[in-house]
């Protein structure tokens, strides 16, 4: 049996592996080129940020930055907005995606299209709309970073909604919820004990994406005259080039650290569990990289 099948498989196997090898080389070249395109600016920025006024290695840009109180206050502001955005996004998106998949799978396409709108409408337009429409809102919202968080929830939708949607898609929500109900569980317990643990990858994806988005967003924040992390970065860049570069490298670290934590946690879980979660994390890490590039 083995020999009968083995012979033709071997003869054709040579050609097959050639094709495979060419494919692998091609993939390597493409990946390498893209990698270089991404890493070279980072490295040269890093080099530049370490050159001070005198020749040789200098940490002056960093020490100046780290001792700048406004660096810390803008960072704190952005983190606050980020946490708010993340919390609000999760509070809105988890019930919504679950509900859509459970009760109204037919409107999935519509929801997806809606979630993409912020990509189609320039954020400047949205911001002007917010200013004119909600200008009369009480000062607790309009005059404070709360409005920024609210707007970021919407602007980050293209990334956050789709991440969670694909995580929910991987589960048979209807059956899981109904199985839970038939066992006597109220929806709250089904959500907490069954759905959330199975949506971990999607939830973490949303956390990372929404947070990275908040750290990197410039246009809306400056239009609404908030000096966030990104706005301050641009302000510094206008006068002090090496500080600005140091600044952006630090910002890069702030997005990479959570991303690597998520990836490490998940590759470990994926190894232990099934391969299911991997796709979601990969997807979200890709979008994070895109986002980081966008923000820079």
């Amino acid at each position: 049996m083995a020999s009968v099948i083995g012979v033709p498989a071997n003869s054709s196997g040579g050609g097959g592996s050639n094709v495979l090898r060419v494919g692998r080389v091609f993939r390597g070249v493409v990946l390498g080129a893209v990698g270089l395109f991404f890493i070279v600016p980072v490295i040269s920025s890093a080099r530049f940020s370490f050159t001070g006024s005198s020749s040789g290695l200098s940490f002056s840009a960093y020490s100046k930055l780290l001792s700048d109180p406004q660096f810390w206050s803008t960072l704190f502001l952005s983190v606050k907005i980020g946490v708010g955005t993340v919390a609000l996004s999760l509070a809105i998106l988890i019930p919504t995606t679950v509900w859509v998949h459970w009760k109204a799978p037919r409107i999935r396409r519509v929801m997806e299209a809606l979630s993409l709108l912020p990509l189609v409408i320039p954020s400047v337009v949205i911001t002007l709309g917010v200013i004119t429409s909600f200008g009369s809102l009480p000062n607790i919202i309009m005059g404070t970073p709360v409005i920024l968080a609210l707007e970021y929830v919407v602007l980050a939708l293209p990334y956050t909604y789709r991440t969670l949607d694909s995580a929910v898609q991987a589960l048979d929500i209807k059956t899981l919820v109904e199985a839970g109900q038939s066992l006597g569980a109220p929806f709250r317990k089904i959500l907490w004990w069954v759905l959330l643990p199975n949506l971990k990858s999607g939830v973490l994806g949303v956390v990372v994406l929404a947070f990275a988005f908040c750290l990197g967003e410039f246009a809306v924040a400056s239009l609404l005259s908030f000096t966030t992390f990104a706005v301050y970065l641009v302000q510094i860049g206008q006068t002090q080039a090496s500080e600005a570069i140091a600044f952006s490298l630090i910002a890069l670290l702030f997005t990479w650290i959570p991303l690597s934590i998520v990836t490490v946690v998940f590759s470990r879980r994926a190894g232990k569990k099934s391969r299911r979660g991997g796709g979601g994390v990969l997807m979200s890490s890709q979008s994070v990289i895109e986002l980081v590039e966008l923000a820079e």
Partner: peptide
Amino acid sequence: SKRSIGMVFQSYSLFPNMTSAANVEFGLKV
């Protein structure tokens, strides 16, 4: 959730994040 029924579905309906034992315990935990 208030009716006293046990249901087995056509599609696999076990909770993927739980072992068989935890699955069986679910209704009791509730």
